[in-house]
Design a binder for these strands. Structure first.
Ligand SMILES: NC(=O)c1ccc[n+]([C@@H]2O[C@H](COP(=O)([O-])OP(=O)(O)OC[C@H]3O[C@@H](n4cnc5c(N)ncnc54)[C@H](O)[C@@H]3O)[C@@H](O)[C@H]2O)c1
Ligand SMILES: NC(=O)c1ccc[n+]([C@@H]2O[C@H](COP(=O)([O-])OP(=O)(O)OC[C@H]3O[C@@H](n4cnc5c(N)ncnc54)[C@H](O)[C@@H]3O)[C@@H](O)[C@H]2O)c1
Lengths: 227, 227
DNA sequence: AAGAGTTTGTGAATGGGAGAACAAATCACC
DNA sequence: GGTGATTTGTTCTCCCATTCACAAACTCTT
């Protein structure tokens, strides 16, 4: 049983290993890989220890071997079929995204409720009616669905996906969706990320204001610290 | 000092409150809001307690009042100017995204290194040369930058952003970027999210296989449990 | 073959967040 | 004005994750 926090970092390690392999590096230490992945080396080693003992003390890790082991653990040694629902601005970008194929996923269908969008072909895949979801999902044994519709439709789309046998959903719509037990949902939310940045940005601004005030001889001792 | 986990949820509460307000609801309990935000009500109350005491015991929270307080805490009562670098598939979708304006952000510039993209106008904003970054960032006092270039350019773009005075970066490129202290980076990574889903999907499949085997009378006792 | 130098894997300590549970505060009603 | 119902704010406990630190294991040199 691998901790959730570790699972979330394995894809980062996988990418870093791929970059190292592309650079012709065949062996790396936990320190090297940690730097490439942007984490602490102790954390990296502990994470890898959950998978097994794939390194060699005094030497490090074989890049290709470790890469295969992580890919196997994640489950991306074969391709996963994926459907995308909502082929608007974002849906088009996702459909055109070449990184899907190279990272273990294959877009088998693009679906949209708007009849005007049907017959359009995006990145070689035709846009089909949303009503075809279940047939397509069953035919290709699709387990993963991506929601790129407006927020108001997200719950309905999720319900239909679940009914079609999809058990993992990636939701780009800014809406909380509820699903039965056994179905995983992850969300990607631009506005939330920006607002988190804005919060910290605002704190930096306040901090600067305080420091500036100090510089100008204001009553520094009267201003409380951060702690 | 608000815990990071709480900061990450405040935007979710803000969105839920906006939805409640749009539905004409003027007062809500922590239970109501927690349901709308998809969290536990105890967690919600504890989160809100870091901001202050904005509820009324026995009654609940005034939707508009709480919404304003959270918006103020996050820092989205005024608009933050934002620049987007890399106006390809994803950059176009982001530039066209209407959710920016309504959530406290204003796209002041779109930048791309490719001269062919210049003179193009996306969502009313012209695409300008990447070299103009510093001038534009200084002019509009831009603190937040979005990277939507290929991974290979991400570090370079980040360096230029930092040099231009940007102190918060949202990175869509699948690359680890390093920045000086005082600069915040958040990443949005489609492949990582899909791979996390794939991991759990694979585990579900194994679990089903095990249960199926049991159903068919295989040696259940000989199969190890999960623990 | 032995010792010096590396690097992994992991036990132990620390820190932070999640959730249960309850006292304090408010309202509605009489 | 008093009583019961409701809901917040907070305390306490537990659990997970991060980090430190080091023994075990390996390589290279002499
Ligand atoms: N564009 C972005 O950069 C961006 C960024 C962050 C989040 N988002 C979110 O992603 C979602 C999509 O954004 P967009 O800009 O592509 O919107 P869009 O309006 O361009 O596209 C939405 C598409 O979904 C389709 N659709 C609507 N209801 C549907 C249904 N029930 N079933 C199937 N298809 C349906 C529409 O026909 C349309 O083609 C929105 O929720 C948006 O908030 C977008
Ligand atoms: N398209 C998607 O749905 C999607 C999804 C997830 C992640 N991503 C990531 O987002 C990034 C952009 O994806 P895309 O599909 O839009 O790619 P794209 O190739 O369509 O667009 C990239 C744009 O960046 C510009 N660019 C390149 N180097 C630059 C530089 N140094 N300075 C300024 N501009 C530069 C290019 O001219 C191009 O216009 C990639 O890193 C990709 O991996 C995209």
């Amino acid at each position: 049983m691998i901790p959730e926090a570790t699972v979330a970092r394995l894809p980062v390690y996988l990418r870093a290993l791929t970059a190292l392999a592309d650079a012709g590096i065949r062996t790396c230490s936990s320190e090297d890989l940690a730097t490439a992945a942007g984490v602490n080396s102790a954390k990296l080693r502990k994470d890898l220890s959950y998978l097994g003992s794939y390194g060699t003390r005094g030497v490090g890790y074989d890049v290709d071997y470790l890469r295969y082991q992580i890919a196997r653990e994640i489950g991306v040694t074969q391709d996963w079929p994926v459907v995308i629902v909502g082929i608007g601005n974002l849906g088009h970008a996702l459909a055109n995204y070449s990184g899907f194929r190279s990272r273990g996923f294959r877009v088998v269908a693009l679906l949209d409720a708007d009849p005007e969008r049907h017959e359009e072909i995006v990145a070689g895949v035709p846009v089909r009616p949303f009503a075809d979801l279940e047939a397509i999902a069953r035919e290709h044994a699709v387990a993963i669905g991506v929601i790129a519709t407006p927020a108001g439709s997200a719950q309905d789309v999720a319900d239909q996906m679940v009914a079609a046998g999809i058990t993992s959903i990636l939701n780009f719509a800014p809406a909380v969706i509820s699903v039965p037990d056994g179905v995983d949902v992850r969300k990607v939310d631009l506005s939330i990320e920006l607002q988190i940045l804005a919060y910290h940005e605002q704190r930096k601004a306040h901090e600067h204001a305080r420091v500036d005030a100090d510089d100008h001889g204001a009553a520094a001792l009267a201003v409380g610290g951060d702690a």
